[in-house]
Design a protein around this nucleic acid. Structure first.
Lengths: 203, 203
DNA sequence: CGACTTGAGTACCGAGCGGTACAGAAATGG
DNA sequence: CCATTTCTGTACCGCTCGGTACTCAAGTCG
């Protein structure tokens, strides 16, 4: 049975982790195959054999990023109250955006915002993956409204979008070199806008 | 006296406006000289004669953008109260990010977030220009604190940063195709976090 | 041991990049 | 008129891009 042919000489997951860092720091367009393969420690051809092409490598890298570097988002959704979910998410996000051992900011934001040479395929892909996170949060908040954990009449989609906006704005700031403390100060203020169950805010 | 030599065959400002759109939509790296000069309706050489090189053209384009497309920001600073300043800024910003006759989003965000082939010079330049706006807002808010227009103890820099974070997050959303209404809904929520003079919020 | 299968390495492809040399065109100054 | 100055247009530069053809190395099968 075993593997036929010459065995692969490198660890795919480890190589992917290196690729994540390069895409994260330099963006999709800014990361050349030479940059990527040098960081991954493998040959150009090996990369094509293992991942297909640059775009597929990027998809794999984003998936890996979502799984490893954004695990905090899934954990936040498990918090008992809507406020705790949002607070946990924004706090962990601020930390993740400023980890000293990782590039500043967020791969799914600085990976590519504008249409590059690919007519926006990369930007659209990243936008969709961010939107998926927003929807997941909105569903969690909708449950909170049902449970009376958020004031009746609260729009869970709007609140989820607001939370993502704060997260993405912080990502832009982090990419520009803002400190972790600065991001948390912003979260302090942003949390003031989150409705609490006992304080009916709407008109 | 008059102009010596052959007169220029195109309007520099008009050409610059076209360049702004291309950079805005495609980002700095994604906008090729061919894309730019075709949109500007001029020859490659004419562009070099008039602007120097691609990077200098970009600087001119950003300056033009700040002057024309971000005029609302300066106008917002003239509002009488801190709350009115912030509200005016965020409302006009949401509109500007979704103008039907212009690219979605904000040039100074999607122009370049990650380091491209230029080791981050473009990203740093844009970050600095965004920071300049943040400082201007912070100064205006500092005045508001002195005037009792914001609660004593309010950190004007932190509040300015929060406002810019919302603005930049909305820019990311707009670039991803969010509607104008969605952006305004986010502003509705974001404004809840802005302290008012009569409502002391801090502990 | 070969026959076969698969990864690794080199060397290269056409295309597009930013930038420029050079010749010609259109104006002013004498 | 011609010399000078400046802009325009073509045609090209060297370089890097993403991607690949081809050869060799390293394994499993029989």
């Amino acid at each position: 049975m075993a593997v036929r042919g010459r065995p692969r000489g490198f660890d795919v997951e480890a190589a992917l982790d290196r690729a994540v860092e390069v895409f994260w720091r330099q963006g999709y367009d800014g990361a050349s195959l030479t940059d990527l393969t040098e960081a991954m420690g493998i040959n150009r051809t090996s990369m094509y054999a293992a991942f297909g092409n640059k775009e597929q490598l990027f998809h794999r890298a984003v998936a890996r990023y979502a799984e490893a570097d954004m695990a905090y988002a899934r954990e936040a959704l498990a918090e008992p109250t809507a406020y705790a979910v949002i607070q946990s998410f924004l706090r962990a996000n601020a930390d993740a955006l400023t980890r000293p051992d990782r590039p500043s900011g967020c791969l799914s934001v600085q990976g590519g915002l504008a249409e590059g040479g690919d007519s926006g395929r990369i930007a659209r892909f990243l936008a969709d993956s961010r939107l998926a996170g927003e929807h997941a949060l909105a569903q969690r908040l909708a449950r909170a409204v049902e449970e009376g954990d958020l004031p009746a009449g609260t729009d869970p989609h709007a609140l989820a979008r607001y939370v993502m906006v704060v997260s993405e704005g912080n990502a832009v700031h982090a990419a520009a070199g803002a400190t972790r403390a600065a991001l948390h100060t912003t979260v302090d203020i942003a949390l003031q806008a989150v409705p609490r169950p006992h304080a009916q805010v709407s008109a």
